[in-house]
């Protein structure tokens, strides 16, 4: 149990960098025109407006749906490739270089390829989200599978479980922490890529709205739409943390951290 003083100190530590950034921004806002540095109050007012205006908020939801769909597809395909690689050295020798190659292609190149290869906007965005997240998921899941403790695996195996029992009792709990970490990392990456993906002719979404704000030279609007994505990432990370806290209560917490 943390002492109240300790909680206040931690809260102050957390708030300090944001307070410094806000002060620096406000100083800039006093000294430059609003189309360059709009006051923070105006930015947050716009952000709040987006949240409560259904016609605007639907764009946020569209972007969130694209992120989640792309990540889910990448997780299923990348996880599948990881399982194959984990089970077969030949599969690892085949898929490993392919995934490394895909990982080396810049996100912007995928945007170009998607425009050429696909006609529909949603197809393009899904493809970009999928292909940019897939290698990372595959390598992260493979790493998690390889890190399954051999001695514990043998112990469970000694009871002669079915494949399903082995998966439920041993594999899943063992790889879950790494998989949640992979989602955390890829969620952050995907929220940055989605904006680029939505520039390829989307008629909705945060990326599309950002393009509109840029054309109107509306900095407050651009920041307000950007904040929607930041809010989403923070919310998703908070949910993942809550899930981790609940699911990994078994972990020993050292009294002294590194």
């Amino acid at each position: 149990m943390k002492a109240p003083g300790e909680t206040a100190r931690r809260a102050a530590e957390l708030a300090a960098p944001f307070a410094v950034m806000a002060i620096a921004w406000e100083i800039a806002a006093w000294n430059f025109p609003p189309f360059l540095f709009p006051p923070l109050a105006a930015v947050f007012r716009r952000a709040a407006q987006i949240l409560v205006t259904p016609d605007d908020f639907v764009h946020v939801l569209a972007t969130v749906a694209r992120i989640l769909a792309g990540l889910a597809g990448a997780f299923i395909l990348g996880g599948g490739a990881a399982v194959l690689m984990g089970r077969s050295r030949a599969a690892e020798r085949f898929f490993g270089p392919v995934l490394n190659f895909l990982q080396g292609v810049p996100a912007l190149s995928w945007v170009v390829f998607a425009i050429i290869w696909f006609k529909g906007t949603e197809q393009r965005i899904f493809f970009i989200m999928l292909v940019t997240s897939l290698p990372a998921f595959a390598f992260q899941v493979l790493g998690a599978l390889k890190a399954v403790p051999k001695d514990l695996f043998e112990m469970v195996l000694s009871f002669r479980p079915t494949k399903t029992q082995m998966f439920r009792a041993m594999i899943l709990p063992s790889v879950l922490p790494e998989i949640l970490t992979a989602w955390r990392v890829n969620l952050g990456n995907a929220s940055r890529v989605v904006v680029v993906a939505e520039l390829v002719g989307a008629t909705g979404g945060v990326g599309y709205e950002l393009l509109q704000q840029q054309q109107m030279f509306d900095m407050a609007g651009a920041l307000a739409w950007t904040l929607q994505l930041v809010f989403f990432v923070l919310l998703a990370q908070w949910l993942l943390t809550a899930l981790e806290t609940r699911a990994f209560a078994w972990r020993a917490a050292p009294e002294r951290s590194l």
Binding site: D151, E154, P161, A169, W250, R251
Partner: peptide, 25 residues
């Protein structure tokens, strides 16, 4: 059933859930 040199308990399971593993299988 095997008793290993080291306990090889599943760290994510409580003592009772570890002890019940064989019957679960």
């Amino acid at each position: 059933a095997i008793v290993f040199q080291n306990d090889r308990l599943l760290p994510w399971r409580s003592a009772i859930a570890n002890a019940g593993l064989g019957l679960e299988m």
